[in-house]
Design a protein around this nucleic acid. Structure first.
Lengths: 332, 332
DNA sequence: GTGAAAGCGCTAACAC
DNA sequence: GTGTTAGCGCTTTCAC
């Protein structure tokens, strides 16, 4: 049925070893044989079976990326960065979506266990630090975007605490003193860090941190609306709101608009992530951007280094973020 | 280093065949051996190497999905549908993003050639009908969402012509007679079909099709704004606009809003795809929804059937769409 | 510069 | 019910 290296060798009148050599561009093969083999390959339409190759070489040159969701435009950019870098080094990137379900994530991690991929990077995970640490002992894994506290695993993200600080600071610089926060409860580390940064910024500016200005909910969009509703029901309403994700921020904006407020004037809103929606929404959304492309490249670079080295790097790398002011925030 | 089936066999005091048998749940294994082997597997932390298995079985039970972009929330839903169905049948779905670059797409198709995956489904492709037909002769491929004219390849999509018809019809039913279209030039089949449907709907209603009401551009968002600007510069302005994608529709809405128009009242706008943005935008966007989940399930079902049958099904399947009216469209 | 042959980890045909 | 063994397609050592 399908043509193998043997067929090529027979047809070209050389040994399989020679065919393999030209396939892998190794030295020690005469110009003549090389040309002959290449012609035969073309003639027969031969394509090497990587199952054989990978089995023999004990490597696949494929890295798996597990995403919690496919909705996040952030992930697309990160993966593009990964792909560009990986391809240059002869690696391929494949991705799988876990929809944040641990049983799906587990199933996908199987590709690591069964040697179908050389390594995996997780853009958010439901695994615990212990589980990750155990995994990291036997396999090459990395976290990107979202770290896990206590995990000694190669991680590439932004400094969420500082980013939260800078976001709140930007609002303060616009003259706001009554700044609310839409955050998520749960164990999501990045959100908690952003929240901590927000609190530090207020304190640094001598602004009292008020409980009624801090909302905890889920990542679901409607939660942003609920938060805004709550804030606007207060006697002493905030003039600015910082949400730990753009989706929450947009939902908050929608709610504010439905209450007759003009976002950017009556109330300032700042998001986080700089997803493509930020530009599309009216008003365009101020936010904190993560260097997605760079993060993708960097984590792949480090992971491939780990793949090919004895002593693995399991450090936490924080890449630079950027506050972007658009129409949704204004001076008080 | 890594533990193999041999190690398990030795440790358990049975042959590799027996281990293999319990691994694959085949009959003819005594309860006792089975338990013993399973215990040994757990004890040794053994995980079968699928490179060996796949090589031997000449199949991987993995299907590759190639997406033109990762921004499209549509794709996420389709892939979820694929995954659910595939997993049930023991298959895994992996995905790769081509960013619409044919050289990346080609690289990714390599996984098909080198037998790393059993089949591939393309959510939009830059390959020609001839190329696809040739591919389909030797490999198991399918198209989803976006067909290619002249390609005799298993395809699952909606009936774009009818969907375009129904979208325009819905606007007509709201009393509109001056209905403009934002489409894309290019060879994108789905858009052309939607456009044809739009034209047929107008004709059926006895409405003249006016050149100045039809805009051709790219899929880039700003193009939707340009279109709206053009329409609003006409002496005889349209009262409704149908865009062949939600992104274009949203951009058109934004432009209209910036011109002081109230979308849904002064001008009605209808999109296509029902991406998650539709609900988030203000006003929420009327659109045509594709049965993403179902499409994903269906194409995987058919592809797996092809994988395991002699005579391959290369038909075109059109699944049902649905017009969804929200705030962006109103009665005239 | 080239070929013979071992072996990567697994499944399955065959023998018992 | 179980074991022996050939072989999937490839790379690589070793010999020449």
């Amino acid at each position: 049925m399908s043509v193998t290296i043997k067929d090529v060798a027979r047809e070209a009148g050389v040994s399989v070893a020679t065919v393999s050599r030209v396939l892998n561009g190794s030295a020690n093969v005469s110009e003549a044989s090389s040309r002959l083999v290449n012609e035969t390959i073309k003639k027969l339409g031969y394509s090497p079976n990587f199952l054989g190759r990978n089995l023999r070489k004990r490597e696949t040159n494929v890295i798996l990326v597990i995403m919690p969701s496919s909705e996040h435009s952030l992930y697309g950019t990160i993966i593009t960065g990964m792909q560009d870098y990986a391809n240059k080094l002869g690696y391929d990137i494949i991705s799988a979506v876990s929809n944040s379900a641990s049983y799906i994530e587990t199933r996908q991690m199987n590709m690591l266990f069964n040697r179908t991929v050389d390594g995996a990077v997780m853009l958010g995970t439901s695994l615990s630090a212990e589980e990750l640490n155990e995994l990291a002992e036997n396999y090459n894994i990395a976290l990107c975007c979202e770290g896990v506290e206590g995990a000694n695993v190669l991680t590439v993200a932004v400094d969420d605490e500082q980013a939260g600080y800078d976001a709140a600071k930007a609002l303060i610089s616009l003259g706001h003193r009554k700044i609310a926060l839409i955050s998520v409860d749960s164990a999501v580390v990045s959100s908690r860090k952003r929240e901590n940064g927000y609190i530090r910024a207020l304190k640094d500016a001598g602004i009292e941190v008020r409980d009624e200005y801090i909302w905890h909910g889920t990542y679901l969009a409607h939660n942003g609306g609920d938060a805004m509703e709550h804030f606007m029901s207060l006697d002493d309403k905030p003039t600015a709101v910082f949400a730990v994700s753009d989706l929450l921020a947009v939902a908050a904006c929608k709610k504010a608009q439905s209450m007759g407020l003009t976002v950017g004037k009556d109330i300032s809103v700042m998001g986080f992530d700089n997803i493509s929606l930020c530009d599309m929404f009216t008003p365009s959304l101020s936010t904190v951007s993560q260097p997605c492309r760079k993060m993708g490249e960097f984590v792949i670079r480090k992971l491939i280094e780990n793949l090919t080295t004895a002593n693995k790097d399991n450090k936490y790398y924080a890449l630079g973020h950027e506050v972007i002011l658009r129409e949704s925030t204004g001076k008080i």
